[in-house]
Nucleic acid binder design. Structure first.
Ligand SMILES: [Zn+2]
Ligand SMILES: [Zn+2]
Length: 726
DNA sequence: AGCACGCCGACT
DNA sequence: GTCGGCGTGCTC
């Protein structure tokens, strides 16, 4: 009889801990595949991890490995490509691999408990929404708003997002026979028709559908040029080849509209939405259907870039310039950049679409690393871009914050029966509450910031942390009772406008007025129905929402960043104003945009008025090259916070000392953050600039092990590669 | 990041 | 006497 030595095998497991290493565990039972989710003992607790390597020794671990407790098969082993993508991200953003994998997985797969997939739920929809609406009395507007959504199939969970009672109503309507229900995969409806394409669109479609292998495109298309229709027809052809499409979109409450349009065009094509509105279970279910290759279209926000897709055929990043593609805490990745890497890895085409591309992507297109495709005509024949007028406000008397020309234009539009949008990106009544005697201003105790006066709620609130307090009745410094609101917020505009527009219906739409479920939906419905005359809106309304009767837009206080240190301020303002201008005018009603500005002489406005992003982008890119700013070089930013600024600065000085100077590497001095105090800590930062991303990575690879070994008590620090806010 | 261990100040 | 403050150190 042959005595076999006991075969011991080991697994190297990635765990969600801030340590840049893998942990060795002994395999006792069946051998899990690489990529499997496993339950392991870790110190006194049991946590979930992912197997990255199998081997017959414990690598460099000298102790006695503990045994894996269980292989959790609620998740199929992650494909090698997904693990490799996570490895790339871990390396590029200098983040521990276990933490990257954890961030890439739906929350339920980070927990040590096994996820039980619920039975597939039915979806509810109306074949003829008009017929359904006839059954619902007009005295039930909330029910009618829900009904109006039901051309698109909804799960019970999706219904609950529309309105707390929506699921209850739908059950009744279904019993009445006014609605159909089906398993999601079985919905058979007529697809919305392809829209006719103009010559430019057809040419772009031909280019995109003809591409094979890794092929990056920058689709530069002006507002209203029909980018979405081009996406839809391109997607149809990728689906016809039996492949999956990943569509990444910004994080805004616009996902439902886009999802509706996709579902209407591709009824019966399984689609997985992955946005922040979903609960953990929905997210996990949709993610699994993508991983299994069942969902053919994955429509999601930045996190969706990590979704495993066995038959990936194309990636589309819509509004590629949008800052929400860059995560601003923890793993500070750019989903757009990761998407480009992923397209290269999967050897598929990628389309970055925007009316105002990021200068980074513009530079790539100019350098022929991306192929530039242009849509320069409006898709709807005869439609013209809105006219933009600057209203200089320097040394001009304003009436409740409005220029007389703006008031006149608003009156004219309202007289024609049209709607007006006042775009004011500042919630609350006034950004400052000030003492008229001594000049004292109400400030947050935890942040270096003013408290914003919210008169409606009778509170002073900090917009940077959760702090709020009752309105101070008197100045704490001099006792004066005459405290004055200074500056104009949306609430103040809402209060003063009726004086100038008596009898007109005015509606404020901002985060405060739409914080409850269904409120935004209700507000938008009021605007669509035409019962609202003037809308006062913040950033929330800048994107996407199209109102047929809205012709006139007045922009207030948008350009405060123009002379700031932030070198991306112009780029962002161009994108914002382009988007806001897109709200003005439809088809036969031409739009007009009035921008109140204190900087009407700024060269930026010459280019905005020319309505052409290309010369602006060319000039900006040239400036960046002249001044050695990204994308002409590569930046990394160390941030530190501590109870005292001195501690943060000293930590950054120690970090800086770990980086060896070399030619073409700029090591700045640590400086206090522009807003020194935030949420009770004092903050500082250290910028390093390298000639190229390659040099930057080499420098960071070299320095980070030393930096990680530093003892920095009371200080929390993080590294941001390719920061967008400095 | 958790979580335990450990060593000093004021509480029943 | 012990409850709890958070500094320090470790996790296969
Ligand atoms: Zn005072
Ligand atoms: Zn604050």
């Amino acid at each position: 009889m042959i005595k076999r030595e006991k075969v011991t095998a080991f697994a190297l497991v990635a765990l969600d801990v801030p340590l840049k290493k893998l942990f060795a565990y002994a395999l006792t039972g069946p051998i899990p595949a690489v990529g499997s989710r496993v339950l392991v003992p870790f110190g006194p607790r049991r946590i979930s991890g992912v197997v990255l390597e199998l081997r017959d020794d414990a690598a460099d671990f000298k102790g006695t490995p503990k045994a894996i407790l269980a292989v959790l098969d609620d998740l199929p082993p992650l494909p090698a490509e997904t693990l490799q993508l996570c490895q790339f991200v871990a390396h590029y953003y200098h983040y521990p691999i276990g933490a990257v994998i954890a961030a890439a997985l739906p929350k339920v797969f980070r927990s040590p408990t096994v996820f039980r997939e619920p039975a597939p739920s039915l979806v509810y929809f109306a074949e003829d929404v008009a017929e359904l609406l006839q059954q619902i009395p007009s005295r039930a507007p909330a029910q009618r708003r829900v009904a109006a959504h039901l051309a698109v199939p909804h799960t019970p969970a999706a219904l609950r997002r529309l309105h707390d009672s929506a699921w209850r109503w739908v059950k009744v309507w279904h019993e009445q026979g006014w609605l159909q229900s089906a398993l999601e995969a079985k919905v058979l409806a007529k697809a919305s028709d392809n829209l006719a394409l103009n010559a430019e669109q057809s040419q772009v479609l031909t280019e995109l559908t003809g591409a094979r292998g890794f092929a990056p495109f920058l689709l530069y298309g002006i507002t209203g040029s029909g980018k979405t229709e081009v996406y839809l027809q391109t997607i149809a052809q990728v689906l016809a080849r039996g492949l999956q499409v990943l569509v990444l979109i910004p994080e805004i409450n616009l996902t439902p509209q886009l999802e509706g349009r996709f579902r209407a065009r591709f009824p019966g094509v399984p689609m997985a939405a992955l946005h922040s509105g979903l609960n953990d279970t929905e997210r996990a279910v949709n993610w699994l259907s993508a991983l299994r290759g069942e969902a053919k279209i994955v429509l999601g926000t930045r996190l969706a870039v990590f979704t495993p897709l066995p038959q990936l055929g194309m990636i589309i990043v819509d509004e590629e310039h949008d800052p929400s593609f860059k995560q601003q805490e923890g793993l500070r990745y750019s989903a757009r950049d990761v998407a480009v890497y992923r397209a290269r890895q999967a050897k598929v085409p990628i389309v970055l679409g925007s009316a105002t591309p990021s200068i980074e992507s513009w530079a790539n297109a100019k350098a022929k690393r991306y192929r530039m495709l242009t849509l320069s005509e409006r898709a709807v024949p005869g439609a013209v871009l809105p006219k933009i007028t600057l209203l200089p406000v320097k040394n001009v008397g304003l009436v409740d914050g409005l220029h007389v020309m703006a008031l006149a234009a608003m009156h004219a539009a309202l007289d024609r029966g049209e709607q007006v949008l006042i775009f004011l990106n500042r919630r609350g009544f006034s950004p400052v509450l000030q003492c008229g005697e001594c000049g004292w201003m109400a400030c947050c105790t935890h942040c270096s910031a003013r408290l914003v006066l919210h008169l409606k709620e009778r509170r002073l609130r900090c917009h940077h942390c959760g702090y709020e307090q009752a309105i101070t009745p008197a100045c704490p410094d001099c006792g004066n009772h005459d405290l004055k609101p200074v500056g104009q917020g949306t609430q103040r505009m809402e209060e003063s406008l009726p004086l100038h527009f008596p009898g007109k219906k005015i509606l404020r739409i901002d985060r405060d007025s739409t914080s409850k479920k269904g409120e935004l939906d209700a507000a938008l419905a009021q605007v669509h129905s035409g019962e609202v005359d003037i809308v006062i809106g913040t950033q929330m309304l800048a994107k996407g929402h199209d109102f047929d009767l809205l012709t006139t837009v007045v922009v207030l206080n948008a350009d405060t960043g123009l002379y700031s240190v932030d070198f991306r301020a112009e780029e962002r303002l161009f994108a914002l104003l382009t988007q806001v201008a897109g709200r003005a005018g439809r088809r036969e009603l031409p739009g007009e945009v009035f921008i109140q500005t204190a900087f009407s002489d700024h060269p930026f406005y010459h280019q905005l008025l020319a309505r052409d992003f290309a010369p602006f982008a060319d000039r900006t890119l040239h400036e960046r090259q002249m001044m050695l700013l990204p994308p002409a070089n590569a930046w990394a930013l160390f941030r530190a916070d501590a109870p005292e600024l001195e501690q943060a600065l000293s930590a950054l000085a120690q970090i800086r000392a770990c980086i060896a100077p070399e030619p073409h590497l700029l090591l700045n001095q640590p400086v206090a953050a522009t807003m020194l105090k935030k949420a009770g800590v004092e903050r500082a930062q250290l910028l390093i600039a390298a000639q190229s991303k390659v040099q930057l990575q080499a420098v960071l690879d070299e320095a980070l092990p030393t930096i990680a070994a530093l003892k920095l008590p009371k200080v929390r620090w993080s590294l941001d590669v390719d920061p967008i806010e400095v």
